[in-house]
Design a protein around this nucleic acid. Structure first.
Lengths: 159, 159
DNA sequence: CGCAAATAGTTGACGTATCATGCAGTTCGC
DNA sequence: GCGAACTGCATGATACGTCAACTATTTGCG
């Protein structure tokens, strides 16, 4: 018999879920990215940063706070902010409490860009993702995501 | 009253599924990429191409066949193959039937690389993804993926 | 205090993804 | 059979993502 806890390869069910997951993400991601590029002035990466900033009280956050919120590396964020700054979407402000730090603030142009992009983006998220799924699938997907990410949703007594 | 078929924003359930899906993919993808970089000589992109080639009869395919199999753009594949060729993982062979075409063949070094990487990669897929999910979740995920991708699995009569 | 360690953020190099463009070779209508 | 349209693939520019340094502060501790 084969070793039980080993991983020779994925069986059919596992393969279907795994490949399906990857392909679904690739499709959805491509759709969203090309829709933003076609219809707006922001990329997916821009969008993520701008949403994070607009959801803050002052429209302004420390770099590390953005990075933590998006689960991005500091370096990735730094590069992204440089590009966004060059296009006038965000600006830097000194940080009084810690002179190593930077406050990143959304500019009026940044607000215009995200306000224009958001409804189109949400519509596309619905079109390519949400609209294909009923509540059962949505919940199952969210549950799966919680498990994979190690979020202790509701029932998880064991181990 | 609000337009019913419109998309103001995602409700809580939709938001949970959508953000969960994105975050799950980001986490899984990072884990797999860094595991390959740490323990092997191939990247995720290399892995995808090499697996496609090994699954072909001759260990050799036309460029467009690889692109179609992976759902990649021709340009993306061309760049990827150039890098892989430079590292000796694949080689080009003339294509008798169509002199525009290229046959891409896996090299012995390519086979060594993929043979060494595959078990480690599969183990990581299990560790970060499969192992967190029971059959119910796997099937739900695969179903969701089929719907989003427009695959007419079993029951889908309407519209 | 004085200095080592930790933290905040930047930078350069390189791999990866997309778009626009280019070009050799093929096909097809006439 | 010849030229236009199409196909197969490559290339250059630019955006994105990661790693490995690096700088400038702040913090902690003897």
């Amino acid at each position: 018999m084969m070793a039980a806890a080993e991983s020779p390869w994925l069986d059919e069910r596992e393969q279907r879920a795994w490949r399906g997951f990857l392909d679904m993400h690739a499709l959805v991601n491509r759709s969203l990215a090309s829709q933003l590029q076609r219809d707006t002035d922001v990329s997916l990466a821009d969008y993520a940063v701008l949403v994070t900033l607009t959801e803050s009280d002052e429209g302004q956050l420390r770099s590390f706070a953005i990075a933590e919120s998006l689960q991005w590396e500091a370096s990735r964020l730094s590069h992204q902010l440089r590009r966004m700054r060059a296009r006038g979407l965000v600006e830097r402000r000194p940080c009084p409490e810690d002179r190593r730090g930077i406050n990143v603030a959304i500019t009026p142009a940044g607000r215009e860009a995200i306000d224009a992009a958001a409804p189109l983006h949400v519509a596309e998220v619905r079109r390519v993702f949400i609209d294909h799924l009923d509540d059962t699938h949505l919940d199952a997907l969210a549950d799966a995501a919680d498990r994979v990410r190690g979020v202790p949703t509701d029932a998880a007594p064991a181990t």
